[in-house]
Design a protein around this nucleic acid. Structure first.
Length: 799
RNA sequence: GCCGGGGUGGCGAAAUGGUAGACGCAGGAGACUUAAAAUCUUCUGUCCCCUGUGGACGUGCGGGUUCAAGUCCCGCCUCCGGCACCA
């Protein structure tokens, strides 16, 4: 576990994953495993910094207070964390190694400086992180955000694109997370094609395009360059210069949002220049349009309006020719992107799309005008932030603007104290104003800091050796503990954190510091917990504390006004936040834990039901009342040292098996219901055999450790139930001697009967026919066939 | 549009192709109580009748496979999440 310690404290969504992992940890310990179940703090980040800007409080102070509050809450829930391994990304002893890992990337050429467009907010005078930009506006204040190129540190994650994609296959992760990562990496197989500039062009050379449809080359009726393409200026003819310059200027001003999400109508201008289609030597006009992205492929495309919807829209808008090269569609209406036979395509005519792609790629390579090529949507990782509350880069700049790594023995490079947390105003971080920190001889320190993802990229490795001052972690510990066997977290980290961490892990693998290609073998996402919210007639939210449920639905407590109810995300503004502190106060930590698990399947989104907590609380109370004498602090006299009767022994064995299997398979909700079934049976007994009682306490203990420890002591034990071994079951005892057989006539249920599980078939058939309802259905009919499934069902096929 | 995951009582849900609705919530009836809360017992998918050891229907919709389908196959509808001018 590695939460961000926010000022809001825990909400009931946090303990869902925490409880699940704690149950597994406790269960595995009881089964003799050495379990590493750690917790630490991902404590750099924006909220503390924003608070610092507003109030002048050092982010360290805020962070420490928030961590203290989180710890208090987490400890109140009884999670069996190894607190000796607690780590904190803002601790110099930790970020020393974050900086050290950065230097390893730097040394391998995986960190570089580039002029990259960033989110510049003129109103705030600062650069914003992507997550601070909502729908093209700053999260704070709602000011306009534009794209502005600035000097940035980049990490070359694209060098690992193929491996990041390939190695997903071997992971036990939810399919949707793998799908999201595959989608994000976005591998496309296609070809690069060179179009030579026409002889009359001002410059000579090629325009290289990337296409996934080389087979449609005969249908390419124009080329489109992105406004940022390097050749735009050089090839534009004098007549077109003004229009092109205007267009490029406009495009530069637009935010990404305006260029993509909002602008579905195509815009563009003609450059006046032509290129030669290598396959048929036809002069092809070159256009500029901002629907072509400079950051993907070669920043230039061949446009095949007949068989690409975007090109079709563009051709229609500017009245450019559309040629059919694949049969099957109606080009007067729309582009045809499906499969079909090639036409108007010379040597490809008659081939289908896959064969056409192959043949054209071969032709391009043979004639040296193109080659097969793979492209990825994945971009390099913009790794710097112009902020205070992050890891400083261990980098020095010399007078010639060359960067140099800080020697490793000088790590950690700690954050200096600053007077103000405000951005410097130039787009640089507040560190730029701390002259005594900034100047090192005639060198200058890098003033950017690392993004929050940096510290969380490798925390799981620090857990295995949290106090090591010689290395990020020891090799022996890495061999012993890695990889992470089970990682539970929210789906919001599906791509960013989980992709970045996989990237760093692979770099560490290449360096030889870790022995597995992947950090997290098994991943599971808990579903979000939602809650009922209430609105009045005007649509205004009414806080749940002011809501009363009546026969006619929810009403406002104070006025009786009827309210509408809906299930939504918990938030302060909706007045539907459930605070775990309140649940612990009213019902205790065990009830909270149990209810979190009982609500439904762990991976499902589900609403919090306040009445549901009282349900599991009742269950725990019944466990207590079964074993403990009323108003006395001792074992109830109905608990006796006697063996179980056959029925009790059967259900006891079934319960051990079911609860254990359900923990292994993360089906905590059905495991709890198995315990409920078990106690329902025990409550009916006049005497409770001690072994039956102990079994109950043992299987309950991973879920509800507090009450289980108390009951364990009542049962006379002096050691902890948490240290007791998980009970064993006998598969032979999990079956009854008599079984209930269902009887169907022509597939319809007509009754049941009980019989010895080993009874001969004739006896079963006779018993089945003896059921009055069955006999009635069979009356006057011939039994054509009798299907007997031993121990389960008999089906008479009668006419 | 593309990708991924769902749709079962009033609600949360359960069901290796073999008794649909376990377990819990809410609700009804009863016990205890001066009373209420708490607790305990019991009923509770819908509909029909001759009130039973009864019948019909029922897992988003329409087909199919099978002795038997919530579960498998084909075609739809719909909701949620992600991505989205990536050529």
């Amino acid at each position: 576990m590695f939460p961000y310690p926010s000022g809001q404290g825990l909400h009931v969504g946090h303990p869902e994953g925490y409880t699940a992992s704690d149950i597994i940890a406790r269960y595995k310990r009881m089964n003799g495993f050495n379990v590493l179940h750690p917790i630490g703090w991902d404590a750099f980040g924006l909220p503390a910094e924003q608070y610092a800007i507003k109030t002048g409080t050092h982010p360290r102070i805020t962070t420490e207070a928030n961590i203290a509050n989180f710890k208090r809450q987490i400890k109140s829930l009884g999670f069996s964390y190894d607190w000796d391994r607690e780590i904190n990304t803002t601790d110099p002893n930790y970020y020393k190694w974050t900086q050290w890992i950065f230097l390893q990337l730097y040394k391998r050429g995986l960190a570089y400086v580039a002029e990259a467009p960033v989110n510049w907010c003129p109103a705030l005078g600062t650069v914003l992180a992507n997550e601070e930009v909502i729908d093209g506006k700053s999260e704070v204040g709602g000011y306009e955000v534009i794209r502005k190129p600035m000097r940035q540190w980049m990490l070359k994650i694209t060098a690992y694109a193929e491996r990041l994609l390939e190695d997903l296959d071997g992971l036990d992760w939810p399919e949707r997370i793998k799908a999201m990562q595959r989608n994000w990496i976005g591998r496309s197989l296609g070809a690069e094609v060179d179009f030579a500039l026409a002889p009359e062009t001002a410059v000579h050379g090629n325009i290289r395009v990337f296409t996934t449809r080389p087979d449609t080359l005969f249908g390419a009726t124009f080329l489109v360059l992105s406004p940022e393409h390097a050749l735009v200026k050089a090839i534009t003819t004098p007549e077109c210069r003004k229009a092109v310059e205007d267009y490029c200027e406009q495009a530069a001003k637009k935010s990404d949002l305006e260029r993509t999400d909002l602008a579905k109508t195509k815009t563009g201008v003609f450059t006046g220049a032509y290129a030669i289609n290598p396959v048929n030597n036809k002069p092809t006009p070159i256009w500029i349009a901002d629907y072509v992205l400079s950051t993907y492929g070669t920043g230039a495309i061949m446009s095949v309006p007949g068989h690409d919807t975007r090109d079709y829209d563009f051709a229609k808008a500017f009245n450019l020719p559309i040629i059919e090269v694949i049969q099957g569609g109606d080009l007067s209406k729309e582009a045809y992107t499906g499969d079909g036979l090639h036409v108007n395509s010379g040597f490809l005519d008659g081939l289908n799309v896959p064969d056409g792609k192959k043949k054209m790629t071969e032709w391009l390579e043979e004639h040296k005008v193109g080659k097969a090529s793979i492209n990825y949507k994945l971009r390099d990782w913009l790794f710097s932030r112009q902020r205070y509350w992050g890891e400083p880069f261990p980098i020095l700049w010399d007078k010639n603007h060359q960067h140099h790594p800080l020697p490793e023995e000088q790590l950690p490079l700690t954050l200096p104290e600053v007077q103000s947390y405000e951005p410097s105003g130039t787009g640089e971080s507040p560190l730029a104003n701390i002259t005594e920190w900034l100047k090192v001889g005639d060198m200058t320190r890098e003033t950017n800091t690392m993004p929050q993802w940096a510290g969380s990229c490798w925390y799981y490795l620090r857990y295995i050796d949290p106090n090591n001052s010689e290395a990020p972690f020891s090799q022996a510990n890495e061999k012993y503990w890695m990889p992470v066997d089970f990682y539970i977290g929210g789906a919001e980290h599906a791509v960013l954190h989980l992709l970045y961490a996989r990237f760093w892990h692979k770099v560490l693998y290449d360096i030889g510091l870790v022995h597995t290609k992947e950090p997290f073998q098994k991943l599971f996402n808990q579903g979000m917990i939602l809650a009922y919210s209430y609105k009045d007639q005007h649509g205004a939210y009414v806080h749940v504390d002011d809501v009363q449920k009546t026969e006619n639905g929810a009403v406002r407590k104070s006025t009786g006004e009827p309210l509408t109810m809906q299930i939504e995300k918990m938030s302060k503004s909706r007045g539907n936040v459930v605070n775990p502190d309140d649940v612990v106060r009213d019902y205790g930590a065990d009830s909270l834990r149990l209810y979190e698990m009982f609500m439904g399947p762990l991976d499902q989104v589900k609403p919090w039901d306040p009445d549901g907590v009282s349900g599991v609380n009742r269950f725990l109370a019944r466990c207590w009342k079964l074993l403990v004498a009323q108003n006395e602090d001792k074992l109830h006299e109905r608990v006796v040292d006697e063996p179980c009767d056959a029925e009790t022994e059967m259900i006891r064995n079934v319960t051990i098996r079911k609860v254990g299997e359900d923990i292994e398979n993360l089906r905590f909700n059905t495991g709890i219901s198995a315990m409920m079934v078990y106690i329902n049976a025990l409550e009916k007994l006049p005497k409770v055999p001690r072994i039956a009682a102990e079994t109950l306490v043992l299987v309950l203990s991973p879920y509800a450790p507090h009450i289980a420890e108390e009951l364990w002591q009542m049962l006379g034990h002096t050691d902890c139930v948490s240290l007791a071994p998980w009970p064993k079951y006998d598969p032979a005892k999990c079956e009854r001697n008599t079984v209930t057989i269902a009887v169907q006539v022509v597939g319809k249920m007509r009754g049941t009967f009980d019989i010895d599980r080993n009874a001969p078939e004739e006896e079963m058939v006779a018993a089945a026919k003896a059921i009055p309802a069955v006999a009635r259905q069979l009356e006057g009919k011939n039994i054509v066939k009798t299907i007997i499934v031993p121990g389960k069902i008999i089906n008479f096929i009668a006419k």
